[in-house]
Nucleic acid binder design. Structure first.
Lengths: 193, 193
DNA sequence: ATTGCATGTCAACATCCGTTGGCCTACGGT
DNA sequence: ACCGTAGGCCAACGGATGTTGACATGCAAT
């Protein structure tokens, strides 16, 4: 422990590590897991492919590091219950437009089992936990969270992956207006008979 | 034209072609486009990889043949307007469970541009056409169809690809009950301000 | 100044992939 | 019975990919 008494002293290669991670996220988001090659990522980051192996061990390890993600869901207990749906869609849409990590994860989850597992974790843990904070019936929270995930992921899939023209061209605010009632019902609606 | 006067006389290799196509659909559905190798498909069909090339030209050509698909949407004009949503979810769910072609297309669409293009065609053409048969405002039909696609594809993505536990465990009838009102509103609901 | 270690480069290996061309076999029309 | 041709198999090529190891370089502590 030489200069600063931090638990992890800053390494000289941090810039390189960050460049690799940034390039990896771009490539994974644009091409998916298998088409995104280590060589292409290294070229983008202007370093040698072997550095990727040194710092992240393997392609799987690189993806695991690049796909680290937090939904950053707001505290739903401080949201008026009638606006839960609207708040959620707006949050997801903003989170998706601002960070390509989720697109990378979404693309990779279709073919890579590890990515699917990670996606399952994110939505089963973070989203379910958020729904549980205000839910009444614990037996239904998982199902409500799953339904919300189905609509939110469907929105992302059609807008960012398949790029269905109507979903790409529609303004975010209009999407929010259409989809918010759906999430609202999934979250607080009475379950069907 | 020996026996029957059909325009395309049956070839002796039809059984092989069908075996290849069946194996291809399975592999594409299970592994996605890039992980599904021609060698593995040929092994499943118990033939030589070169036969795939002879009959389908290339891997792209094989996929194009294996991903041929028709949604077989029912005639929506003969459906009571209040039940449009329910009829549609039920139809999609049945179509998805009964034919793995759609799963193959869905998986491949994440990474393969051609598959995404095909998916765009299916939903932009077939679904939009079906919605247009009863729609009142032509300017809105594309958007309504896109919203329906977002929920339906999200359902498929979470249930068959990511395999989110709540979406996998829930019975089809209960999913129909939850999701039908969503499609109903996307199809016939009044647009937001 | 010298040593040690992190950083980076270069070349190569082993494997797998899509694809190709040559060759054998057996059916079907004559 | 004969022969053309379609069906099928085998071996190989060219290229790409993940991964590895040996070797250079430069910073930092002694």
């Amino acid at each position: 422990m030489t200069p600063s008494a931090q638990s992890t002293q800053p390494r000289r290669s941090d810039a390189t590590r960050a460049a690799i991670l940034r390039a990896a996220r771009e490539r994974f988001a644009a091409d998916g897991y298998e088409r995104a090659t280590i060589r292409a990522i290294a070229a983008d980051a202007q370093i040698d492919p072997s550095m990727v192996m040194r710092y992240y061990g393997s392609k799987e390890g690189l993806f695991a590091a690049a796909a680290e993600f937090d939904l950053r869901l707001p505290d739903l207990t401080s949201v008026p219950p009638a606006q839960l749906g609207e708040v959620l869609v707006r949050h997801f849409l903003a989170r998706w437009e601002g960070d390509e990590t989720l697109v990378a994860l979404l693309r990779a989850a279709s073919t890579n089992p590890g990515a699917a597992e990670r996606m399952r974790g994110i939505f089963a843990d973070q989203l379910t936990a958020a729904v549980a904070t205000f839910g009444t019936d614990p037996a239904l929270t998982a199902r409500r969270a799953g339904l919300v995930a189905s609509q939110v992921l469907g929105l992302a899939f059609t807008r960012y992956i398949v790029r269905l023209p109507p979903m790409v061209d529609t303004a975010p605010e209009e999407l929010v207006a259409w989809i918010a009632p759906t999430l609202q019902r999934y979250l607080t609606g009475t379950p069907p008979s």
